[in-house]
């Protein structure tokens, strides 16, 4: 993973893990690699990884078992909520930008539908 040095690294690690959890690459209940292993894989400081994981434990996206490790939550409502939060963020950005181009709501919906139709055709 390549980091943007202008953004806090723990934040980028969290974001990467959120996406892997929502996409199912990290399944509910799955054990995460050890903190040091994650740090080696990402080539970042161990304390930075620890900070990212602790925050995700506080957010209840991960659960921590003392001396055993960190696990993705088994509570799928938490994962669904996370998915909504992430997609809401993307939609908000897209909507704001298209709105700034003075597209009406109807034009935005039509443009997205047209885009989906052509991309699905190509596939």
């Amino acid at each position: 993973m390549e980091f943007d040095d202008k953004i806090p690294i723990y934040y980028q690690i969290k974001n990467d893990l959120y996406h892997r959890i929502v996409a199912g690459d990290l399944a509910p209940g799955e054990k995460l690699p050890a903190v040091r292993q994650l740090a080696v894989d990402l080539t970042v400081n161990v304390n930075t990884v620890q900070r990212a994981l602790s925050e995700m434990v506080t957010e209840q996206v991960l659960t921590s078992k003392r001396g055993v490790g960190n696990f993705v939550t088994q509570d799928t409502t938490k994962i669904t909520a996370l998915k909504q939060r992430l997609s809401h963020g993307y939609i908000e950005r897209l909507y704001t930008q298209l709105h700034a181009l003075r597209l009406s709501d109807g034009e935005i919906v039509a443009a997205i539908q047209e885009y989906m139709a052509t991309t699905n055709e190509e596939e």
Partner: peptide
């Protein structure tokens, strides 16, 4: 702290 530099100034450590 490196993370504080990133969040406070929005720049990397080298910058």
């Amino acid at each position: 702290s490196s993370e504080e530099i990133r969040s406070q100034f929005g720049i990397g450590v080298e910058d």
